[in-house]
Design a protein around this nucleic acid. Structure first.
Lengths: 253, 253
DNA sequence: CTTGACATTGACGTTGCGTCAAGCTTTACC
DNA sequence: GGTAAAGCTTGACGCAACGTCAATGTCAAG
């Protein structure tokens, strides 16, 4: 059975232009060319097309696809290589996102506003306006009341826990054998979130969805803002914390 | 103070070609053009260039940068929009990564593997030829000797541990809140590897690199071979085990 | 005066097609 | 059989942001 270029395009969910392009670059020549110059495709060409489209969806370049198909080569090895490329790209994006986030914060003047000393209690790292803008008035009032209510002792305890966490994070991040997904890091992440959720009135004490978003937002801030990052051994350490928290929140109910 | 195109390029960490391009598209005309056609830039042009380069690093397109600078517009709003684009792109990548991962698994799954009954002892899950081919003759002989040496009791104990592991894995995988990176799964992975390394003569008892490769290979096999997968609640469960083991081996020394 | 460093404009290459454009072929309808 | 509507062809430009020659002009130093 033979099909015209349009039919094939429709069947495969692509366009005739694409098929002509694949012919041009020698990736997928039609099985037959009529005396009139029309391109005709048979079953095997269709199958080949399916493979091309699949690999393309996986993000491989056409030259690479051509190689793979021509050589009937080890696809899983090629895909594994491709996988690391994708992962690298994702990391790059993550860094870009953090940078944009940071820039937005800077523009909004939150540089000046946020954080004088993170160990002065969480919401006190931000000025009132910012807290209110980001998480609502109630959050600010509630959090402020919480912090005052802690008293000197409670505040000191809070700071102590923060310091311990920072110390443990740095140690974990420095250990070459420890990755963000490791049990050790995941356990730290759990402690970290427990520490955060100790603050009532913040999203961290609300619904799971809010907690997730809140934790992830904070995690990016740790990387983006050097004053926060300093608590975790600099940008690298903070990245480690962010990755670990990112993995951890996925495991939360 | 006026600088030549090269000086400016060096100062800003870019190339003269880029500056000429920016001039061509009207994004950054030089502050003065000599009678000879040379481009000269002053301080304000440099500042403008810094802004362009910053925004470019954040991933914005040149036309958009031009708009922003021309309009002196609300940057943080533009960046917020840009942020969601970046996030969308990251999600797309994440899905692509998952798809590639899945494809790799499928490919490897179609490679008919080994095993008859894992509970008959490890190397006995493989045909002799296959074991020898994959891990060498010594491995087979050593492993066989080990198994015989265990005696009925030891063999039963070995099987019991395998069954317990399987049961716990299935429970963990079924629990919607548990992911491969979670502490619970990572703990199971640790137990799993300890169980495996109980076999002398296999790579699992050798160097860390070999252990890693060996565990990863096995992990893939669990998914690929339905007879193994059955011990972990089917393909899905086995995938969970594989992912958890994959994360775990990264944390090993 | 020569040499070398630096400048210019112009134009092609990159990735994977989308999008006309001009013209030939087949199909459908009267 | 005529005609119009589809469908096909090749050819070529466009996009994003420059990299990379190529051919040539200019300036400062020896």
């Amino acid at each position: 059975m033979e099909r015209s270029i349009q039919e094939v395009a429709k069947l495969a969910g692509t366009t005739s232009r694409t098929l002509r392009h694949y012919d041009d670059i020698g990736l997928l020549p039609p099985s037959r060319i009529g005396h009139n110059g029309y391109r005709y495709y048979d079953e095997s060409a269709l199958i080949r097309l399916q493979r091309v489209l699949l690999l393309r969806e996986l993000g491989l370049g056409l030259p690479q696809i051509a190689e793979l198909i021509a050589a009937e080569a080890n696809e899983s090895r090629a895909l594994t290589t491709h996988l690391s490329l994708l992962r690298a790209e994702q990391d790059r994006l993550a860094r870009q996102i953090a940078a944009v986030q940071h820039t937005i914060n800077s523009i909004q003047g939150s540089e000046k506003l946020m954080a004088q000393d993170m160990f002065d209690g969480f919401d006190h790292t931000l000025h009132r306006d910012e807290v209110e803008q980001r998480w609502g008035k109630e959050a600010y009032a509630s959090s402020d009341a919480w912090w005052r209510g802690l008293g000197k002792e409670g505040q000191d305890d809070w700071k102590r826990r923060a310091k311990e966490l920072g110390k443990d994070w740095i140690a974990a991040a420095r250990d070459a054998g420890t990755t963000p997904g490791s049990p050790r890091a995941q356990d730290l992440a759990r402690r970290h979130v427990e520490w955060l959720t100790g603050i009532p009135g913040t999203p961290a004490a609300g619904s799971p969805e809010h907690t997730r978003a809140y934790v992830l937002g904070l995690a990016e801030m740790y990387v983006a803002d050097e004053r926060f990052a300093a608590n975790y051994g600099g940008t690298e350490g903070a990245s480690f914390v962010r990755d670990a928290l990112g993995a951890y929140v996925k495991t939360m109910p």
